[in-house]
């Protein structure tokens, strides 16, 4: 059971990486350069959208670019 959960987590790792790492990194980079998020979103909201979609793309396509 534990092994199955770990395998599932690793399978979805690109998506998790998108929301777990890329999202806050994006938000903090925007804050560092004083860039506002578009469409009235907060920086972390934009980061989650950007990171989540990118991670999902990587999950589906099997590559980040």
């Amino acid at each position: 059971m534990g092994a199955l959960v770990i395998r599932k987590l690793l399978y979805w790792m690109p998506f998790l990486f998108g929301i777990g790492f890329i999202a806050p990194l994006t938000a903090q980079t925007m804050a560092y350069w004083q860039i506002d998020a578009p469409l009235g979103l907060s920086r972390i909201g934009f980061g989650l959208l950007f990171g989540g979609l990118w991670g999902l793309y990587a999950n589906i396509r099997g590559r980040w670019i």
């Binding site: 790792m13 777990g20 999202a23």
Partner: peptide, 20 residues
């Protein structure tokens, strides 16, 4: 697998704590 998960957890925790 454990090291991969542990490392990702560490990275995510750091990033979400404001230390991305």
């Amino acid at each position: 697998m454990l090291l991969q998960l542990g490392s990702m957890g560490f990275l995510f925790a750091l990033a979400w704590s404001g230390y991305a």
